[in-house]
Lab assay of single mutants.
Amino acid sequence: EPREEEAEKYIKRANGDYDKAQELAKKDGNEEIAEAIKEYKKR
Results as ranks from 00 to 15, higher is better:
1 E>F: 14
2 P>F: 14
2 P>D: 14
2 P>E: 13
2 P>H: 14
2 P>S: 15
3 R>Y: 14
3 R>S: 13
3 R>F: 15
3 R>M: 15
4 E>R: 13
4 E>W: 15
4 E>N: 15
4 E>T: 11
4 E>Q: 12
4 E>H: 14
5 E>L: 14
5 E>G: 12
5 E>F: 11
5 E>H: 12
5 E>D: 13
5 E>M: 13
6 E>M: 12
6 E>Y: 06
6 E>C: 09
6 E>K: 06
6 E>S: 10
7 A>M: 14
7 A>R: 04
8 E>P: 05
8 E>S: 06
8 E>F: 12
8 E>G: 05
9 K>T: 07
9 K>Q: 11
9 K>D: 14
10 Y>P: 03
10 Y>N: 02
10 Y>F: 03
11 I>Q: 02
11 I>T: 01
12 K>F: 07
12 K>Q: 10
12 K>M: 08
12 K>V: 07
14 A>V: 04
15 N>E: 07
15 N>M: 09
15 N>D: 08
16 G>V: 00
16 G>P: 01
17 D>G: 02
17 D>H: 03
17 D>V: 02
18 Y>W: 06
18 Y>N: 01
18 Y>R: 02
18 Y>V: 05
18 Y>Q: 02
19 D>V: 08
19 D>T: 08
19 D>N: 09
19 D>Q: 08
19 D>W: 06
20 K>T: 06
20 K>M: 12
20 K>G: 04
20 K>C: 12
21 A>D: 00
21 A>Y: 00
21 A>P: 01
21 A>R: 01
22 Q>S: 10
22 Q>H: 10
22 Q>G: 05
22 Q>V: 15
23 E>Q: 09
24 L>Y: 07
24 L>V: 02
24 L>G: 01
24 L>H: 04
24 L>E: 07
24 L>W: 06
25 A>V: 02
25 A>G: 01
25 A>W: 00
26 K>S: 09
26 K>N: 07
27 K>P: 01
27 K>W: 08
28 D>I: 02
28 D>K: 01
29 G>I: 01
29 G>C: 00
29 G>R: 04
29 G>W: 02
30 N>A: 09
30 N>S: 05
30 N>E: 08
30 N>D: 04
31 E>H: 14
31 E>G: 08
31 E>D: 13
32 E>L: 12
32 E>C: 12
32 E>K: 11
33 I>E: 04
33 I>Q: 03
33 I>A: 13
33 I>W: 03
33 I>T: 07
34 A>P: 01
34 A>T: 04
34 A>G: 05
34 A>C: 04
35 E>I: 10
35 E>N: 11
36 A>I: 15
36 A>H: 08
37 I>Q: 00
38 K>V: 07
38 K>C: 05
38 K>F: 07
38 K>G: 08
38 K>M: 11
39 E>C: 08
40 Y>F: 10
40 Y>N: 05
41 K>D: 04
41 K>H: 06
41 K>N: 04
41 K>L: 08
42 K>T: 07
43 R>G: 06
43 R>P: 04
43 R>Q: 10
